[in-house]
Amino acid sequence: MENVRLGIIGIGNMGMSHSLRIHREHKVPGMTLGAVCDINLERRTWAQENLPGVAVFEHATELYESGLIDAVLIAVPHYDHPSLAIEAFASGLHVLIEKPAGVYTKQVLEMNAAAKQSDKVFGIMYNQRTNPVYQKVRELVQSGELGELKRVVWIITDWYRPQAYHDSGSWRSTWEGEGGGTLINQNPHNLDLLHWMLGMPRRIRSFCSFGKYYDIEVEDDVTAYLEYPNGATGVYITSTGEAPGTNRLEISGDMGKIVVENNRITFDRNRISEREHNRLNVDPFRKPVCWRCEIPVSGDGGEQHIGIFKNFAKAILQGEKLLAPGEDGIHGLLISNAIHYSTWTDDWAELDRFDHEHFYELLQERIKSSTVKKNVVQKVVDVSGTH
């Protein structure tokens, strides 16, 4: 195979952008656009007019059986990611899914099992993993340079979305249409990075507000308290209702503190670890000697989506290791589900023994009372576009 022939399911905001990058702009070496698919006639018409030479299908099964593709990108509403991926694996295709991996962990675990059985390349569009800032933070943490984790605080409230955004689609900001609010729509990248850089919390206690700022039924304001296996703690705060918002990540360890803000990294680095200083020091008020370091980062945000596509193509053609394996989608989603679950049950959510079935039952209760216009919603039509 010289080139990976990609199919795209869902020609909405993201699907259109991806198809143009690959087919018209040729930004992904080793990848061509073989076919696209959407059950919406208007979007199929757009594809026929703007993607010359690319086959256009109405249904995913037709695309899978066409013989025109080797891999598929799934860029549809969240609920349908796992089912379409499972069918693609059964059809012998490599799979790349848009984030989030799904809406509830039960379905994503089934998708991961299907991926493992297929032995196909499985990736997820966690494009923020290409950002040199987060790559450097991960390196500082995982190399041990920050020392043992003590605390993390991430305030990510610059996801402002007005009521007009929530009203822009009948499926948007509803339990039946999207499966949640800011956690499932705007925050999947941040929740993935939290896991990718620091590992998984052990348990979560959260407080979500539903429709606090907008006429919506899902969460638009979240504060979550995290506990890690080593006893470290964290606070995760996010909202779509604050303007101007904040994006500040602070990670404290034995060897100092990392702050990420405005795409810059500051590392207040202790000469010796705080624990060692505490053992040796006899002065009641002496702090560890600390140096302020501005951590240099090359590049401006990384290659983002193009970087994930390039890596996915190389993984298929050359066996390159995936930067964002599809199986990793379960981790950020588990944090998201646990935050919902803790609020719904008014109790701790234990991640290492999370009750996937009970979460699913509670979600179904909210779907049944969802205010989504059932006669308007069409799954696998609206792409998970501008989040």
Rank of each mutant, 00 (worst) to 15 (best):
A338S: 14
E327R: 09
G10A: 09
K116P: 00
K287P: 00
I155M: 11
Y134T: 11
M14K: 12
L96N: 03
P296Y: 02
V235D: 01
A47Y: 05
R5V: 05
R271G: 06
E49A: 15
N262H: 12
E139Q: 14
P229Y: 08
L63N: 06
L149N: 02
S91T: 01
A35H: 07
G181V: 04
E87L: 12
L93W: 00
V133Q: 06
A90Y: 05
R264D: 11
F122P: 01
V383Y: 08
G147R: 03
K99L: 13
V235N: 06
A349C: 04
I330S: 07
I265N: 03
Q135W: 01
A114P: 05
N230F: 08
V372Y: 02
G10C: 06
N311R: 11
V76T: 14
K106H: 11
Y160I: 03
V28M: 09
G211F: 06
P162A: 01
N375S: 15
I204H: 02
V297K: 01
P296L: 10
E250I: 14
G7M: 05
A114S: 14
N278M: 07
G67K: 01
F89W: 08
M125I: 03
L6D: 06
R151Q: 12
Y104P: 04
T266F: 07
V137C: 06
K116I: 11
F57S: 09
R44H: 07
Q135P: 02
S209Y: 09
F359I: 07
V141M: 08
S273V: 03
E58N: 10
E65Y: 01
V152W: 00
V377I: 15
H18G: 00
W196I: 04
L183E: 04
R279P: 00
T345Y: 07
C208S: 10
N375Q: 14
K310H: 10
Y360T: 15
I316W: 09
G102R: 01
M255N: 14
L51K: 04
G179Y: 03
A75V: 09
P29R: 05
L63I: 02
P100Y: 05
Q378G: 09
Y126V: 04
Q364F: 02
Q117A: 15
H189Y: 12
W171N: 05
V260C: 03
E2Q: 13
R151D: 10
R264F: 02
G245Y: 10
M14D: 06
W159Q: 14
Q107R: 13
Y64N: 09
A90T: 09
L73I: 02
R275G: 07
G147Y: 03
I367H: 01
F210L: 11
V381M: 09
R172F: 07
E42M: 13
T343G: 02
I11V: 14
D300S: 12
R172V: 03
Y134G: 11
Y160N: 03
S66L: 04
D355P: 15
N337A: 05
L363G: 05
L33V: 07
G241Y: 08
R151P: 00
L41M: 13
P284M: 10
I11T: 08
I295Q: 01
